[in-house]
């Protein structure tokens, strides 16, 4: 295969395991997101791929070549650092031209390429500006231009929007994939923010405590989280512990809010996810819950109800515009178990 092959990477720092048997592939021209909470090993993974940190075990192959013996500065990979790491003693153009100068390019070509890349990120007029005078968003774009200028085979971005405010982040989140796709750039995008990960990449790797928890498209991951950790990390609520009393029928599970048929055997200690967005108000439906509204809140595109069912608080989301009951009211909720229920190991 022609892209990036990461196989069985293992890394420990002292007594802590940073990466444990991490493997994945990335085709050329594709963008991959690596998503996980801070401290899950994502940055270490990037630094190992970049060649800044050696792995304890495992191999990394790029375009069929094993990278073990190739030092970082000869891999022709780009890495955009969390806080951009712009060189403070150089102006914007000099920052962008640094990688080109390292390739011993002709001055005229360097100048031309620098101008091109600055234009691409919308900073044509900023060439001679001091990097201290730039805003957060401008710095981010200079860092992107600097990593793109030498045309790296693989571009890695480490939390590139971490330091920016929300509105700016949302705008850049839309621009970045556009720029990368226009250059057919192979890229790995590391973030702890699921919205970013889903918006930027077609494929997402979720990491947890140094291991890969799930790989898939954003839809696959969101609709079918592979584990309790993934469901929690994605912010899915209504995670119900499962127990197995003696009189349980085949294919049923017992939860604090009642028995449900899930059509298969479930082990003790599993968790049942009742998806908050797959529930309708009122009956009748295939399965009905009865409860009392505790709180109602408006969240923009959706509205949220907190409902007490048999002493357990559950959360449900409805489209804005749906008429909702008031706190204290009694409600019936119905759902299709096929769509709304999912067993997590």
């Amino acid at each position: 295969m022609n892209g990036l092959l990461v196989r069985d990477i293992h890394k420990t720092f002292g007594s802590t395991t940073a990466l444990d048997r991490v493997s994945f592939d990335l085709e050329e021209g594709q963008i991959l997101s690596v998503l996980g909470p801070s401290g899950c090993g994502k940055s270490t993974l990037l630094h190992i791929i970049a060649g800044l940190v050696p792995p304890d075990r495992g191999t990394i192959t790029w375009q069929g070549q094993d990278l073990a013996s190739i030092p970082a500065h000869k891999r022709n990979f780009g890495l955009m650092f969390q806080e951009f790491a712009l060189f403070p003693h150089m102006d914007v153009s000099e920052n962008v031209a640094f990688g080109l100068r390292m390739q011993s390019m002709q001055p005229a070509q360097i100048e031309q390429r620098t101008r091109e890349v600055l234009e691409l990120v919308g900073l044509s007029a900023f060439g001679s500006r001091n990097v201290d005078t730039l805003s957060g968003g401008e710095r981010q774009r200079v860092a992107l231009a600097r990593s793109l200028a030498p045309q790296p085979g693989l571009l890695m971005l480490d939390e590139p929007f971490g330091a920016l405010d929300r509105t700016l982040r949302e705008r850049l989140m839309l621009q970045l994939p556009e720029i990368l796709h226009s250059m057919n750039q192979t890229a790995i995008y590391v973030t702890h923010d699921q919205e970013e990960a889903f918006a930027v990449a077609a494929r997402v790797v979720i990491m947890h405590a140094g291991r890969i928890a799930q790989v898939g498209t954003p839809e696959e991951i969101y609709c079918a989280p592979a584990s309790l950790f993934v469901a929690r990390f994605l912010g899915l609520s209504n995670l119900l512990p499962v127990s197995k009393p003696a009189d349980l029928k085949r294919g049923e599970v017992q939860t604090p809010i009642g028995r449900f048929s899930v059509g298969r055997e479930v082990g003790e200690g599993a968790t049942l996810l009742l998806r908050p967005d797959q529930v309708r108000l009122g009956g009748p439906g295939p399965t009905v819950l009865e409860g009392r509204v505790i709180q109602r809140s408006f969240r923009g595109g959706t509205q949220r109800l907190k409902v007490d069912v048999e002493g357990t608080e559950l959360i449900f989301d409805f489209m804005t515009g749906t008429a909702l009951p008031d706190p204290g009211d009694h409600v019936n909720l119905s759902f299709d178990p096929q769509q709304a229920l999912q067993v997590l190991a």
Binding site: L52, H73, G78, F81, F98, M102
Partner: peptide, 9 residues
Amino acid sequence: DAAVMLGAN
């Protein structure tokens, strides 16, 4: 590290 990634030894 950024300089190394841009090809500096």
